[in-house]
Design a protein around this nucleic acid. Sequence first.
DNA 1: GCCGTTTTCGGCCCGACTGTTTTCAGTCG
Length: 572
Amino acid sequence: MDNIEIANILNQIADILELKGGNKFKIGAYRHAAQIIEAMPKDINEIYKKDELEKIPGVGKSIADHIRELIETGKCKKFEKIKKYVPKSVVDLINIQGLGPKKVKFLYKKFNVKSIADLEKLVKSHRLLRFKGWGKKSEQNILKGIKLYHKFSKRFLLGRIYFLAQGILKKLKAHRDVDKAEVCGSIRRMKETIGDLDFLVTTRKPREITNFFVNLPEVQEIRAKGSTKANVLLRRGPLADLRVVKPESFGAALHYFTGSKAHNIAIRKIGVKKGLKINEYGVFKRVGKKFVKIGGEKEEDIFKAVGLPWIPPEIRQNTGEIEAAEKGKLPNLVSLKDIQGDLHMHTKWSDGENTILEMAQAAKKKGYKYIAITDHTPTVGVTHGLTPNRVLKQIKEIKKINQKVKGIKILSGIEVDIRKDGCLDLPDGILKKLDVVIASIHTAFHLPKKEMTKRIIRAMQNPNVDIIGHPTGRIINKREPYQLDLEEVFKIARKNGIVMEINAFWNRLDLNDINIRLAKNFDVKMSIDTDAHSLSGLDMMIFGVATARRGWAEKKDIINTLPLNKLLKIFK
DNA sequence: GCCGTTTTCGGCCCGACTGTTTTCAGTCG
């Protein structure tokens, strides 16, 4: 069992306890431990082997026992026992937006609601209206929540399975009979959600490799297995395909399996016009009645055959990249190595896991030249946000740490909350003292479009605001973006020199690819920041950069590619 | 269930918002 599987079970225990109405601090303890284990870079099995489980913060004797049991037997008595209290399908209902443990418990006990179908039927019968606390609005909200759940429930978030895919890829590459291996599909295009995993391998021993693949420990169930193709269900949830081709077809197969489908069709169409046939085995030229292979070992061969330069996977959507390539006007996409610093992160001063010093040292290790510490403000209650006094204290503290740590500059910042009316929850006099001010919304998500737009624009007119954090507020698979007139917002951003954040955290990725392209059209500058709440959170930068690339962003569009002296000129 | 330069017991970040009420429970972060 890996970290995420263990964390999943701890979270499920917490879910069930919540439904049972258990002690909320106990529930919190399970969740806390799950969060730490999921986010920590170390393999929990290694920690188990060293008998150091209880050294993990948030893990005491009891949870350590559960983990030991899980690692040794794959099961845990506590979980097996409380699982009997409610069916899993009932627990899953709390994932519907607007439903929490209390409401789900009520629905289960009173109406025996066990599934989304049950729930929908009940709501539509209006029988709920007779009960205290359930009104017309509640009905509407539940139906909306169900719709959202259906819309998103089939795809996996990139950040949840990216590292799983990389891990499997590493194993494939390490196999002595494997020539080349790559992960294709939407993961290679770094799409924010992933349907399944596509692995491509070249080898002279296809049978051995397919066998090796279906017997990987990550595999739960073999669904199909042949000599050059296999399909499995992974324990983490998604399906995974393996395709084996000959080395001389690697490039063609890579292109074919990377997609997108729309992009591939467009490329093949150009090929047809030139008398070419393009498929996963190569590029073929028509000679009389026969087709003769003219390329396919490298991905470049495919593009070259249709007279185009190589196009980065992230923008292969057939949304203008082929036309741009034809004109020699492909964007020079920003890349991870261009990033000079990270301007949004939290520390123990609010809801982060690590100290300012630890974050700075980890960032320095990444080669960053600067970071900004941007803790929360009091409105976001759970986070123990910074009051004016604590802001001043933190500024002093950062000054001290800057003298200690060489080679990286720590900027004093804040993620100040934008209240419902658009004013900020710290006084201007305090904001003025900070190097960088990010303003974000964490409450009142459901305002009408006009009001929400006005709210953000009012915040952008505050002379101290530099960046708007996660500008649309969406949580992938969970919460829709706010109703917002982004074009209006971008106009003001351009005028006032406000930077729009590309929040790199994998369940946000906000701005998303489409809005990044829009912002670019308005000549709005952006910053790619992790919103890290722990050291491992800093690793999320790849997802932010990938999203920026999908939005055609270039180095010049992204402010945290600038050296410090130039960056500081942008801030007020 | 976890944790301790306020500690080994007794705390455990809590404010904003919504929808329902008319003072508050539930949800969210």
